[in-house]
């Protein structure tokens, strides 16, 4: 499944990193702690978080994540968007809470 498929199925907003919409998605990881994601997320996962600063993109890029979904209507900082474009890792958004969007994502692709 591609990031663009998730955007369509979960009705996500696309804030930045459009060139990465064809990135492969194999799972997801939900956390607001950067070291937790560093230590436990895997390549090609989508990261669900409320953190909106550019360090999120540094972690996402180092871990080769597929995309980031910001919850509860949070919008990315300008420098987060810029980093997202640089690394071709889309920053997406939803008004839903992490529990809800994680559940829906799990329903679509399951846990890998």
């Amino acid at each position: 499944m591609k990031v663009s498929d998730l955007v369509e199925k979960l009705e996500l907003e696309v804030y930045s990193g459009e060139n990465g919409l064809s990135n492969l998605v194999t799972g997801g990881y939900t956390s607001d702690l950067l070291s937790d994601v560093m230590g436990h997320a895997s390549e090609n996962q989508v990261w669900i978080t409320l953190q909106t600063h550019k360090n999120v993109m540094a972690v996402a890029s180092l871990k080769d994540l597929a995309a980031v979904i910001l919850v509860k209507g949070f919008k990315p900082d300008a420098d987060m968007e810029a980093e997202s474009n640089t690394h071709n890792i889309p920053v997406l958004g939803t008004k839903q809470e992490a529990f809800e969007i994680s559940g829906k994502l799990y329903g679509i692709i399951g846990k890998f």
């Binding site: 607001d32 702690l33 950067l34 070291s35 937790d36 560093m38 230590g39 978080t49 953190q51 600063h53 360090n55 999120v56």
Partner: peptide, 16 residues
């Protein structure tokens, strides 16, 4: 508040 400082850094270093 930025999501750092959870006390996982050194354990992550040791593990990896």
């Amino acid at each position: 508040e930025m999501g750092f400082g959870a006390g996982m850094g050194l354990p992550n270093m040791k593990k990896n």
